[in-house]
Design a protein around this nucleic acid. Structure first.
Lengths: 218, 218
DNA sequence: ACTAAGCGGAGATCATACCTCCGCTTATAC
DNA sequence: GTATAAGCGGAGGTATGATCTCCGCTTAGT
């Protein structure tokens, strides 16, 4: 991982410093994934068991830390799409990617926020985005040509539907972390050209009290 | 409307004060609808053309103002559900309500935030919510008994799907205010038991630059 | 023309981030 | 063993942004 190895040309860190850098990155990954990019560096420092000063000595500012972390994450989304294009069955490939795309974001609030906001080093994210969109277009086209994916969706609809589903995953995560898969399944059923019966819904629907709990938690 | 008429038992306002109260409520409605509950009372005051002091003389705090405004809005959602239960065709009734439910939130950020957050006078919203859920259950049951709505969705899924769609409406509103209807249509197609062909998608998909614009705007 | 009611908006107050600074500690090289 | 550069913690400086108060002036209504 690029975030973990020392960059060539930089003077080597003292052993304690290197250890702390790792602690900070690990704490940041966990904290951003669990709670989003809004967590403060003060909190990350406390979580990592170091002082804030130590964080700022290693990373010029919050932006740099976010960069160091999410370069990899975005690469994974792209890799998943490349993977999906190798599927024989084009619909299965599309479903594989789409479910993975949403699930990755559902499990990592930070990634979700990096993916569709303009945080972080604009550059890299924009670049990854430019690599991703053509792949999505090909996944869409293949599945449409096979007569599986409805013909009236356009490639730009897909990341938006992904974001929509990641959004509900965010809201329901605390109460039922797998609930979002129901809505992914319903959305995929809606994206098929035709079908005789609905696919089976994963996870359990919420109980009334759980729905109420979400409203209170907001 | 309860928000506009003077409450009985309260001393009558001087004419200029009454006029200002109206101006404030109108400005607040517009501002909350367009930009969400986070707009400051300072901004609402400027928009209304009065001083902040005037706002705070009429409404104890921001909460009270939100209350005064959204009592009505929540009632409308309930009324729409009651209306939908009168439809002969149970699926059409369900669709009528669901589309309206999402559209109302899409057109009013404030309403959306009031509906599923714990802002405002908890009490009234919780009460409305308790009136609404049984209505949703009946709409769902009717459409399922008729064999139109898939049997494996539960009533609690519906407000969550509504929120999910309202969420994407929020994000895309500036670029294409009707885009969310595409995703409502896809979701409804996914909610049917079976169908031969997809329904026709409303609105136009985004162009690549528009998708990019949304990312930048976040 | 008198006065209670209302007005504007500067600024007090509070909250919350990001980031810096500096006196002290420690790893490492010799 | 010791010198020293590197690193450390965390209190607090700074900036921002929101809510709400206060008070000298204005105006509607009798």
């Amino acid at each position: 991982m690029s975030a973990t190895s020392p960059i060539e040309g930089e003077r080597r860190l003292r052993r304690d410093a290197a250890r702390n850098r790792r602690l900070i990155l690990d704490a940041a990954r966990e904290a951003f994934a669990a709670r989003g990019l809004h967590v403060t560096l003060d909190e990350i420092a406390r979580w990592a068991g170091v002082g804030v000063g130590t964080v700022y000595r290693r990373f010029a500012d919050k932006e740099s830390l976010i960069d160091a972390l999410f370069e990899d994450g975005i690469g994974e989304v792209v890799a998943l799409a490349e993977d999906a294009l190798d599927y024989e069955d084009s619909w299965a490939g599309f479903v594989h990617w789409f479910e993975g795309f949403v699930a990755m974001q559902a499990q990592d609030r930070g990634l979700k926020e990096v993916l569709l906001s303009s945080r972080g080093s604009q550059q890299r994210i924009a670049a990854a985005s430019e690599r991703l969109l053509p792949l999505i277009s090909r996944l869409v086209k293949r599945a449409q040509d096979a007569g599986e994916l409805r013909a009236d969706v356009r490639p730009t609809d897909i990341p938006l539907m992904g974001r929509m589903l990641a959004g509900i995953a965010d809201i329901t995560a605390d109460v039922s972390p797998e609930l979002f898969r129901r809505y992914v399944a319903i959305a995929l059923d809606g994206l098929r050209v035709s079908r005789d019966a609905p696919s089976r819904l994963p996870a359990r629907a919420l109980k009334l009290e759980q729905l109420e709990a979400i409203r209170r938690a907001q």
